[in-house]
Design a protein around this nucleic acid. Structure first.
Lengths: 221, 221
DNA sequence: CATTAATATTAGTTTCAACTAAATATATTA
DNA sequence: TAATATATTTAGTTGAAACTAATATTAATG
């Protein structure tokens, strides 16, 4: 019941497994290797260790899955990461493109005390600057309304940006310069096979599909 | 001229060498081993590497010394550490005894951006909560007035606490509970061979020499 | 269903920073 | 100065976590 102490590497594995599980359902060694920027052979090795300590289950050629304990730990790391991102943005004037990298390093290193302190300071937020949900202190994912990519909306529809699922710095920079950030109300002014034309505060912007696919919105009722 | 990228271990070595150099003049393998909680043989190994990359000079059986570049790096780490301590205390409500450990981990991990952000936020402070000087952005040590241990004062003399040179948590806790913190004005009410009696805001406290020796004050002119 | 392509694993190596045990060099002092 | 104590180094090991190259397994397709 008492937590094993994990290496940063191990935490990263659990975190990535969690995110891939959430995204694809099943997680192959390959995918993991790609996300962690590591060779498949290395993944085999590490997964073996994580299976040993029962943080992960592995059915060869089928995929990897977190155990309950593994998921808990992944959520802790994710909580650290997302709280940090919000904290850096809100309290240290980081820009959208800068927060990820810094949080990536800090997440493994801050104490429970630090976590609690910034959570408190920010009044226990539920979403980070990208719109990603922040697991609560007891590691539940906050309820989030159904979202769809802007690219899926009909021309004319109104909605609110709720999540931006890219960490490409150039894209993030460009979006924030255009004020296309989380919680912004937008209208789809037009669309074709190559992308979407958005209207925001009298301004119009064209977003190619490659970007529009990763901007998720809540539709106005 | 471009900085080599160092491991956390290496940064710790440089930092400790700096502190010991400042304290004792020369730094033996033994001392280093003690401070880093590592065996002497390990120190030999690491020092050899640091000599290779010219961050350190080593005269066997005489001692170790930082090169100019080595000192620069040590000061950077020290700056991180002390800025962090102050930040944790001032902005995240850490207590005196909690700041060291957290800073010890964070110091290796924060970016220049982070450093600059908190320095700016705190208006470029010159001393951390222990009274230790914070190297400036260009790595100069701020001028500090001459300090002496309270234990060296005559009974009756007035002074101001400027530095508390222990990281023992229990002592730090007790001192802060008694309000014997940096920048506090105190009077030596009496002394004998076993310690000092202090008067602070109508309160009187007795400090054994073992503690009084590490509380440094600036004497009233 | 046999072959190919995709996926995963093994075995052995590397690097880093520690370790132990044993050897050696210097310093102290009797 | 010789003997002893202290300080330092050497040589070899360990444990993580990565790597490469080669091999093996499964899935997909013609």
């Amino acid at each position: 019941m008492n937590k094993p102490r994990l290496s940063e590497s191990q935490e990263d594995y659990l975190k990535e497994i969690y995110k891939l599980e959430e995204l694809n359902g099943r997680v192959g060694m390959q995918d993991l290797a790609k996300r962690l920027d590591v060779r498949p052979a290395s993944v085999t090795g590490m997964v073996k260790k994580l299976v040993q300590v029962q943080l992960v289950e592995h059915e060869p050629y089928k995929g990897v899955r977190l155990t309950d304990v593994g998921e808990k730990i992944a959520l802790e790391v994710l909580r650290h990461h997302r709280l940090l991102e919000l904290y850096l943005a809100n309290h240290l004037n980081y820009t959208w493109d800068e927060i990820h990298e810094e949080a990536e390093r800090l997440e493994h290193v801050i104490s429970e005390k630090f976590e609690a302190a910034i959570a408190e300071l920010m009044d226990h937020p539920t979403h980070d600057p990208h719109g990603d949900p922040i697991p609560s202190a007891d590691l539940k994912i906050p309820e989030t309304p159904d979202l769809k990519p802007v690219s899926s909306l009909k021309a004319g529809s109104f909605s609110t940006i709720r999540r931006v699922m890219t960490q490409d710095k150039d894209i993030l920079n460009m979006l924030s310069r255009l004020n296309l950030i989380v919680n912004r109300d937008i209208q789809v002014a037009g669309k074709d096979s190559s992308g979407v034309r958005l209207k925001v505060d009298e301004q119009q912007y064209f977003l190619p599909l490659s970007i529009a696919n990763f901007i998720f919105v809540e539709c106005d009722s």
